[in-house]
Design a protein around this nucleic acid. Sequence first.
DNA 1: GAACTTTATCAACACTGTGTCGAGAAGGTC
DNA 2: GACCTTCTCGACACAGTGTTGATAAAGTTC
Lengths: 227, 227
Amino acid sequence: MYREYPMPTAAKADPAAPGRGRRTTRASGDDRERSILETAEQLLEERPLSEISVDDLAKGAGISRPTFYFYFPSKDAVVLTIIDRLVAAAAGSREQALRTLAEGDPRAGLRQGLADLYAAFRSRRAVTLAAAELRMTNPEARELWAQVLEGWVADVTAVIEAERARGAAPAGEPARDMAIALVQMNERVQYASFAGESPSLEQDRVLDVLVDIWLRAIYGSAEPTSL
Amino acid sequence: MYREYPMPTAAKADPAAPGRGRRTTRASGDDRERSILETAEQLLEERPLSEISVDDLAKGAGISRPTFYFYFPSKDAVVLTIIDRLVAAAAGSREQALRTLAEGDPRAGLRQGLADLYAAFRSRRAVTLAAAELRMTNPEARELWAQVLEGWVADVTAVIEAERARGAAPAGEPARDMAIALVQMNERVQYASFAGESPSLEQDRVLDVLVDIWLRAIYGSAEPTSL
DNA sequence: GAACTTTATCAACACTGTGTCGAGAAGGTC
DNA sequence: GACCTTCTCGACACAGTGTTGATAAAGTTC
């Protein structure tokens, strides 16, 4: 059953929250809910969110439209649940990357981090695109995504500041400002690539190009190499 | 009256296209059309496109909903017309920038170009945001924007290649790939700033940060400054 | 200046999609 | 076997889109 969003905790759904019942918490119900989510993901592979109706989701899950509303308050809520899970998975990558970053070469760590993140979203292309679409009209989606970005920005800011502190990176614009621009660049470039927009990078070029710009932005200066 | 899109020509509307009539081409009609466009722009200052209905536009222009359809085939068409004009204005900035770029210091020209573009879109914040929103659901808007981006990417690619050719910029990822990523970064960063998203750059920081990253990406290398 | 054309207007309609209500079925519990 | 929950859906009320057809007003033609 759909629960109000507890912020991007996004852990596993907690089974049998109320009462002390063993685990017989319902069967049909959970099946239906899962079925709706699966239908949504499947339809998103075929067409954009705006062209999917509540009726499509209900039909796909084998229930009537009113019954859909027993499980989710709206189409947006379904997608938000799916996004929430994707974000949780991506958060795993992020922690992994931070660990790599802390112990090894920061440049290699950075590349690894960007690669993992890219892989996480590419593997759920349809959901990623739906998230961007939903963000345009839904405040909750906007808020969720904002928190995701904020997390990355904070991490990147810390990395840049650390590299500057140890003299590996030259001074420049405030680290947080750089981090915001770089993170947003990644977001946009990856989106365009997933969506197959007209000027966009080929899937297999995305990472190389982004990493190059990140490294130049962080470690290079704006001075010409030769004079 | 709304005409089918002749590609982003987007010059001034041609007055009195058919016949050799002096200039009495209608009065009420053009007024209404203008009135609808003005209403749309005004409402976009207040709320997102998705929360504006055809009825709102009709009411604002002092006509009934069916009459609206005499002037425009849809809400999207109205916004597309407005975007078209903004894009035309921005195209002016672009040419201006290219001229500066050709005759003077490329770095200064680049900065000037980015500044002009930024100014052009900032001055029509609401329309810029509406364009991004419309792009999500409307193929024509997507196409129009794609052509705009394509133009910039082509220009930037040429600049990067020229700078590399004259030895002012080091080799690196393909110039066009860099151009795509940089242009898309600008798009996203500016959008976030205009929309006041949660991690986003302050209006007065946008230009400095973007220019810094552009210059580092183009002129810097990915090697550390110190070792 | 009457007949005719073009331009403009809108009430009424048909349609699509959303979300709610209330009546009931299906199963578990005491 | 009365009694909850859980679940289901037909029927409704709404909001929004886009179309039709009847009609008015203005401009053109002879």
